[in-house]
Nucleic acid binder design. Structure first.
Length: 650
RNA sequence: GGGCGCGUAGCUCAGGUGGAUAGAGCAUCAGCCUUCUAAGCUGAGGGUCGCAGGUUCGAGUCCUGCCGCGCCCA
């Protein structure tokens, strides 16, 4: 409803200034700083002032007098030193909401691909990975609720150095056969076992530099897909991916397809991309200097500033393709530009939902056709900002191949890292130097095995929530209390990861994350639960639910919304879609989290200000019940976008 | 050395395309539970928006130069 009015006002003003002043200036709308200025403000007079050589104030007054009636607008008036303020017709507005009048959403044509999570399948997920997955998943939810077709990909680098290192650990150090590794997998917590093994490998390499030969030997075996190392790599990667998917499912994060690096190699995706790159002269063979014998992309391709920018090596002199090279091939496939596709099969996992994984064999494809993957018209890569250089090279690759449109539709959805506060490090038993203790935050390293594992954090949050729920509802069923505690813990975690804008480093503080008060997920959940409680109490008292559409006519709405407090609250509650649209445009899920918090604040104000069930005036009571229902609906929708559930009680 | 990002209240952070008196949460202090559950609400104190210039009728927001911090590349 709000967006519809925005568009209508924009159109009316735009038409008017075109005829009246022959101006095609963009008509901007903003929210006034103070609510008594009205619901919308147009700074258009400031824009016109220069062209017309008149004071903004005079223009605003002229406009206010001359623009005729606009449906749904009560009045236009000049204010301040040149604002044109708009007051909406409250009863028309409320009636529009009640009857679900909406404007058509601005949907992007074609399919949007969002790649996120993308964790190396060699150890347990940590908090940094959580930020990635939660950001990506929330962005997907935002796009979907706005009507976009979205495909979620989780890329699995199952042939890289990180997996190789764990395989080296199993094969050379622990001397374990595939059967023995399988037994470890069956024993559970395999991702945790690998976490420690991987950390110990880093220190082993350091003390025994000769052992690095094991790594390159293993890497070659894995890439070729032969021998016991390849078998181990396959076992390790699949088991760890299953663990990651189980962890993410706890957070309500799911995927459509898992493209794997092994298939990029085996199905010759890279070879095809390599041919394209050579053919279109996007890369060249270096014959001198430090990169002699390598295929490189000239620095000028991905840097606008310096001609002498260092070239980027795509294929090393030993013939091994770099990570960026494979990424260019993958990006081409995402846009349907490679002229090749994977084969697919279902990926067995504990979550139970439909999930596909790439394979290099046609196999059962004919029996059970998969959905069509790839071929997107817009691609978001959720990858942390440390990799922005590499992401720039990938986009430069598309450009150099002549795919300008796709290069422009490739978005590096970047975010800053999650670090730990010194206090939290000490609490977790991580030793710090005196220098680190004085920092605001300390970067953690998966290589050294330092950091907070995702499942540990979730467990801690659930335990804390369970304690709170138990103390408030000792009489409730244990299973339900458990479910409620899970939902609160996940709400707290998802909200915490979303409340910061993407390029702010999160200094993770355990105490802060464990807080369920103030600007947190549980605060918003609590507001929704309170709204639900009013309904429950109504039913318990044997009172009927009103039929709002028939009992609240425009006149009644007008009478009730004369109350300024109610009007402001209704207005706030009606901004959900506008806030989501804005968050999509800016690529900032934090805006939705902020809105959710403000919406919950508004509801809590309403809750304290207007005792709904005790209201004696019948019309007002029906109206307040409607407000309650509307708040509840908008809170649930907004939380849904954030991937947060509304518990049955709190 | 080059690139990217950050610097706003004691702490952690918001501040669409420049616009009206710079906002939250936490922490601190003072209040509110016989009420639709206090995971809540009301109020108070707390700011040279890193510094210096510039553009503009108007700059936390745009430009330039410094300073400090982080990350990436070499």
């Amino acid at each position: 409803m709000f967006h519809l009015l925005e568009k209508r006002i924009q159109q009316a003003v735009s038409d008017h200034i075109k005829v009246r002043y022959d101006s095609s200036a963009q008509v901007a709308l903003e929210q006034p700083k103070q609510s008594d200025f009205g619901e919308l403000a147009l700074p258009i007079a400031f824009q016109l002032a220069r062209q017309l050589k008149k004071s903004p104030k005079a223009i605003a007054e002229e406009l206010a007098g001359e623009i005729g009636a606009i449906e749904g607008v009560a009045s236009l008036h000049a204010a301040g030193n040149g604002y044109l303020n708009v007051r909406l017709d409250r009863s028309i507005y409320a009636h529009g909401i009640l009857n679900s009048v909406q404007s058509a959403a601005d949907v992007t044509a074609g399919k949007t691909i969002v790649e996120h999570t993308n964790i190396n399948p060699n150890k347990a997920a940590h908090i940094g990975h959580l930020r990635n997955a939660i950001l990506g998943d929330t962005f997907v939810r935002m796009l979907r609720i706005a009507g976009n077709q979205v495909e979620v990909q989780n890329y699995i680098d199952n042939t890289g150095v990180q997996v190789a290192d764990v395989v080296v650990g199993f094969h050379y150090l622990e001397k374990k056969s595939p059967n023995e590794v399988q037994a470890l997998i069956d024993a559970g917590k395999f991702d945790y076992f690998c976490w420690d093994l991987y950390a110990s490998m880093s220190s082993y390499y350091k003390e025994n530099p000769d052992s690095l030969a094991w790594r390159s030997e293993t890497l070659h075996a894995i890439e070729a897909g032969t021998g016991v190392q390849a078998e181990l790599a396959h076992l390790v990667a699949d088991a760890v991916v299953q663990a990651h998917i189980a962890t993410m499912l706890r957070l309500n994060v799911v995927y459509d397809v898992l493209p794997r690096e092994s298939e990029i190699l085996h199905l010759q995706f890279w070879a095809t991309a390599f041919e394209q790159l050579k053919e279109r002269k996007a890369i060249y063979f270096e014959t001198e200097g430090k990169n002699k014998g390598c295929w490189v992309m000239p620095g000028s391709a991905f840097s606008d500033f310096k001609e002498d920018e260092d070239s980027k090596v795509i294929v090393r002199s030993n013939g091994i393709v770099t990570y960026v090279g494979k990424d260019i091939a993958y990006q081409l496939w995402k846009f349907g530009l490679l002229g090749k596709d994977f084969y697919y099969q279902r990926f067995p996992h504990p979550g139970g939902y439909e999930l596909w994984v790439t394979t290099d064999q046609p196999g059962k494809q004919a029996d059970e056709p998969s959905p069509a993957f790839g071929n997107g018209s817009r691609v978001y890569n959720v990858i942390d900002s440390r990799q922005s250089y590499l992401q720039d090279v990938v986009v430069a690759g598309l450009k150099a191949l002549g795919y300008e449109k796709q290069a422009a539709a490739s978005v590096h959805f970047s975010y800053e890292m999650v670090a730990l506060t010194p206090g939290t490090c000490i609490e977790l038993g991580i030793a710090l130097s005196e220098e680190d203790k004085r920092r605001a935050y300390v970067e953690v390293s998966g290589r050294k095995g330092l950091g907070v594992k995702a499942d540990d954090l979730i467990d801690t949050l659930i335990a804390k929530a369970a304690e709170e729920v138990e103390s408030r509802h000792p009489e409730a069923e244990a299973a339900v209390n458990k479910r409620v505690a899970d939902e609160i813990a996940i709400g707290a975690l998802r909200f915490f990861m979303l409340k910061f804008t993407r390029n702010s480093v999160i200094a993770f503080d355990l105490r802060e994350a464990l807080s369920f008060e103030g600007e947190t997920g549980p605060y918003v959940q609590y507001a929704a639960v309170r709204a639900e409680n009013i309904w429950r109490k109504l039913a318990e008292r044997g009172q009927r639910m009103p039929d709002f559409v028939n009992e609240l006519d425009a006149a009644a709405m007008g009478r009730q919304l004369a109350d300024e407090g109610c009007w402001q609250l209704l207005l706030q509650a009606s901004h959900t879609d506008v806030s989501i649209a804005r968050a999509i445009a800016s690529g900032e899920p934090a805006h939705v989290a902020k809105y959710a918090f403000q919406l919950a604040q508004a509801f809590n104000t309403f809750y304290h200000e207007y005792p709904v069930l005790a209201e004696e005036n019948q019309e007002k009571k029906v109206f307040l019940l409607w407000m309650t229902q509307y708040f509840r609906q908008q809170l649930e929708r907004t939380l849904g976008v954030l991937g947060i559930a509304v518990p049955e009680y709190m």
